[in-house]
Design a protein around this nucleic acid. Structure first.
Lengths: 350, 350
DNA sequence: TTGAAAGCGCTAACAC
DNA sequence: GTGTTAGCGCTTTCAA
């Protein structure tokens, strides 16, 4: 593969001139420029980004770490990230972690070894993660995505308030027996906050918050678990009238299990999700859910990261960005999407 | 940031020894090794991958180019790719093109400048793309994903046969008036082949294939377009009894428009999709569809790419891989998923 | 078992 | 405007 020296030779100039012709054409005499371009074209010269990156201050690479792309919420966010970097000449280095903290650690290290200019991360649990502190201490540009930790550089909705508002909608619809269904709480700070929000809403209405029903997300037998749980509730005569699912994907799975158990949504039981996946609107009944602006979350996070990167001085970065707001949370507005999966509770048969 | 020289100094050895200690510990005396490791740890040494990549033969980077992540089919595929490279120490450089051929060209160039070891691509139209030929000519390791071009290195289902089989299921259910709904045909070789398959099935049954109804995917007013079309059909008294949608996402959108137009699926009209998105099974009625194994497509494509990369000689690669099968299509089996969206056509009211 | 030294391809002073 | 040159951080002969 032709390198800059080959081009220089063919154009009859020095490699410095080739470099200039490519990067700052205005510094080069038009004829020279033309010769260089011709030579480059003839040789099919493809500049080696590694050489440039090794030499330069920045690589133009952004490291992105997400739990999974199996949940469209993350794919949507990634679309927002892409939209934000589009046209900036930057590229994305992508890793997924499957919610595994050890993979998180490795992935970040890998990205850093590639000398990414900055990191966009969704961590399992941001608040108790030493990782983020380490990164900050090292002066690595970084924004958390979806993680909702006020004191950290992150972009999210206010999960607690959003959940409370969603649950409140259920309460206003007449529900009193509301249970939250969630993936493993310890594996997601968002789920934890949403559970807090659930509690807030229940208590504000004078209702007793119930323990969350946790489903292992990685287990294949998810539907099975839900059915067993339902059967148990049925035996106890304790079937709630509404379920608040900590995310839409879970809600869809739960609705399926409900259907298989012969329960109708919303006639027998109401379901509320969280995320606002587009598919939710295509279902019938449409899925009621707490909408977070996933694409916008990604887009803002990326924009903030870029600002952070551009705000750094060349001087070996001791501290973080210039704009202090970038090191705190950006909370974007959520929205309640009313949908056909929520109705008034069935009439009590005392 | 500490570099290899700092570590060497601290460990009291040369940089060569440090390099060896890190990459081939067995070549280094245990005590030396320990000193190096200690020094590296104390200095929080993080090897710069760029240096190594610039020097070495491979970068360990895989370039992935997909049309969008908004369609879960591509996100699924990406999961398969990730699964395949997991543990190989390789990383993914990701770009999406929004089905734009110019972006395709740019994206590939960008990836190549980063000196990726190989490419995994979904092109808008693989058969008529000079791009792939250029890549092959340059000896770039490359596998197409989803593109279904027998003579090219790609992994897909047999879109034509799969579509025919799906349409045949509609015919067997009693449908004779079947229309295919698709995104812009020119923008996707897969859609084109599926339309051919539609034609095959229709003709085999002695039915006349109808023109496809093409919807611009990028237009926001998609639902609107579908409604207009339906209204037109209604006026003409030409409403088909079944729709074959070229992908599941489209099918969901179409079903929504149908619902809004007051038509019931499947009682008034049956709908068949293509892709086999997981959400399709969560709907009610469940979406009948032609299932392609998206995750497996991604996984196989990645595995083939890795084989191709590993099969190359160090010698400046003139030709492609050693295993000639890697430069032809790998066709994975599809599957028909019966679902609630397909039933017998409504009784004729002559 | 270790070290010295030559680059990988490029950019950016610094001279002319 | 253009050329010379010194690296960016690393791996890898080649010698010792």
């Amino acid at each position: 593969m032709a390198d800059i020296r080959d081009v220089a030779q063919r154009a009859g100039c020095s490699i410095a001139t080739v470099s200039r012709a490519l990067n700052s054409p205005q510094l080069v005499r038009p004829e020279t420029l033309a010769r260089v371009q011709a030579a480059a074209a003839e040789l099919k010269f493809r500049p080696n980004a590694l050489g440039r990156q090794l030499r330069g201050e920045r690589t133009g690479l952004i490291g992105v770490m997400l739990p999974t792309l199996g949940n469209p919420v993350f794919a949507d966010c990634l679309e927002g990230i892409e939209a934000a970097i589009d046209g900036t000449g930057r590229r994305l280095l992508l890793v997924t972690t499957q919610y595994d903290p050890e993979r998180e650690r490795n992935a970040i290290e890998t990205l850093l070894q590639q000398r990414v200019d900055g990191l966009l991360l969704t961590l399992a649990d941001a608040e108790h993660s030493a990782l983020v502190d380490d990164l900050a201490a090292e002066g690595v540009a970084c924004q958390l995505v979806y993680n909702d930790a006020p004191e950290r550089p992150c972009v999210s909705v206010d999960n607690r308030a959003a959940a409370a508002q969603g649950v409140n909608m259920l309460i206003e619809a007449g529900h009193r027996d509301i249970v939250m269904v969630t993936g493993a709480l310890h594996a997601s700070d968002r789920a934890k906050r949403r559970y807090l929000g659930y509690g807030d809403a229940m208590q504000a209405a004078g209702l007793t918050p119930l323990p969350a029903f946790e489903i292992d997300f990685n287990s294949g037998a998810r539907g099975e678990r839900v059915r067993e749980w339902l059967a148990q509730l049925e035996r106890d005569g304790a079937r709630p009238t509404a379920l608040f699912c900590s995310n839409d994907l879970l809600a869809l799975g739960v609705m399926r299990a409900l259907r298989e158990a012969g329960l109708r949504v919303p006639d027998d039981i109401s379901v509320l999700g969280f995320d606002g996946l587009a598919v939710g609107e295509l279902l019938s009944p449409t899925l009621a859910t707490v909408v977070q602006p996933s694409v916008e979350i990604g887009r803002h996070a990326a924009q903030r990261l870029l600002a952070q990167i551009d705000g750094r001085v060349g001087a070996a970065g001791v501290t973080a960005s210039h704009d202090p707001s970038l090191s705190h949370a950006l909370i974007l507005p959520h929205e309640i999407r009313r949908g056909g999966t929520v109705s008034a509770p069935p009439a009590r048969q005392a």
